[in-house]
Write a protein that binds this DNA or RNA. Sequence first.
DNA 1: CCCGATGCTTAAGTTAAAGTTGCGGTTGCT
DNA 2: AGCAACCGCAACTTTAACTTAAGCATCGGG
Lengths: 300, 300
Amino acid sequence: MLDADRVRVLVEVAHAGSIAAAAENMAFTAPALSQQLTKLERELGCALVERSRTGVRLTRAGRVLLAYGERVVGELHDAESAVRAAAGEAPVRLSLGAFASAGKLLVPQALAAFGQAHPQVRLSLSDVEPPDGYGQVTSGELDLLITHRYPGVQVPAAAGLHRERILVDPLLLVLPEGHPAAGTAPRLADLAEQEWICGAPGISNRIALESAAAAEGVRPAVAYETRDYEVMLALIRAGVGIGLVPRMILDAAPAEGWVAEPPGGAAPAREISIVHRRRPPAPVPAMVDMLRRSARCPPY
Amino acid sequence: MLDADRVRVLVEVAHAGSIAAAAENMAFTAPALSQQLTKLERELGCALVERSRTGVRLTRAGRVLLAYGERVVGELHDAESAVRAAAGEAPVRLSLGAFASAGKLLVPQALAAFGQAHPQVRLSLSDVEPPDGYGQVTSGELDLLITHRYPGVQVPAAAGLHRERILVDPLLLVLPEGHPAAGTAPRLADLAEQEWICGAPGISNRIALESAAAAEGVRPAVAYETRDYEVMLALIRAGVGIGLVPRMILDAAPAEGWVAEPPGGAAPAREISIVHRRRPPAPVPAMVDMLRRSARCPPY
DNA sequence: CCCGATGCTTAAGTTAAAGTTGCGGTTGCT
DNA sequence: AGCAACCGCAACTTTAACTTAAGCATCGGG
């Protein structure tokens, strides 16, 4: 049988992106991990990683093993929690991953409520930008993931994981105060020549904007690229362009210098979902409940 | 994280029923396993097994860990097969578990056909009497299980496993040649006072007979107890009693000295199913196909 | 009634494997 | 060109798993 510790090394290396980074995370030295990987490869008779100077990349076989390995590591994680729970111990740790804006807005109140209800559970939160995070959930590195999907962005496969949509967050058109189009419910097609502000190519809100515009047969002109909605609002406030911003962000931002309205015609929205393993440790359902509640009552 | 090797020890001990037997299977000595179990228990802070003179019994916590452990061990098994397959290696091993009468009748022709089509796969077969075998499938000890369910016998939960019914095998009433009831489609209710031959209490065909009879409001008188259908047929042939026998068995038995017919009224049948993990190694679907085919063309 | 068999544990010794340290090589960036 | 980051190799150290041997308790048979 394969050595689970070695498989775990592969999982950690894959998640961290390099042997050195994984070694840092696991509190080992790099050569230790490298040796374990080499032994695993020799044992299996095929290469699992392509070692380069900028880190390592998984081979085809490595990706296959990664999928299994994540499940193995995750089951071992949950096994420990489940046994301790069965023996009457209170659960101790709950690690949460969330995309940045959720971490600022939706999560804090859920965290606070959860902390009051379950003071013995140690909570941790880390930034995970979609579409990442599924592997970490499977492997137990995260117990709960808060992720989103913008229109036009394909959703990662969640084999063996439970995913549940907790909020549909509409994308609103945000214009500088006094902009001529304000209040006229303009369609994206009418705004194609405007100066748009959104993420760089490949960033999800860029894809969402382009796919929504493409549905109306136009290609927006992107003048300013930022993935940070705070920056985007500041630019809009300064009158240099317009953008498409989730309502959740707007609800929590100072409502000065800009106006927002749904774009005419289309109704683009991002979906916010939670992801966890099928047999999660005890505190996960409770936290999910808090998050659902938090999602139902704006301003989040 | 829990040590997977120690978890595997628990799984093997649970399946074998004692530390000594598990040690034998794993080619270790008993103290080695005992020490590993002790460390696992200390690590988790709770007892996993009750050690007694007649072997060990799992505690509540032990059963919880067993369920997770079986999945861990099974995933590690399949991981290795999957990686080797991805690297282009031909699969090597396929282990099959079947109940005794399937092993005599239904399986051999499927094994032969499979062996011709995939000569490089090493096949192994072991006896597993229902309701056992699910744990071994989960843990990868078996790749494929052929099991049955008699009416009135509750089916084990198959969490995370794939189960598929491949054959419904009717139970026929078998009488000695020349028995007065022969050819009259007698109901079980009319035969309650006959000398019945079937398994001991708790054996599945005993349960099936009693539940079918109970449905007609009678309790059969069991005169001879054997779980072996060959013995049962020999007794019937000798004229000492009557029995309920799956058609599959009859089709393969010498058709002398007895007559068979469906009991009037009820139509009891045993269901024969195959069970495997959700992501089985490559040869499993092929073997399942052979078995389906084998099940469709009597005399099996 | 004792004796042997069975099954698990404890204790001590051996051995195998994992991890660390240190050095060298390659690549990419400033 | 030089520095920093990352990986690989080799020698040494240490941890821990396994074995052997002995001990304790229970149970069944002579």
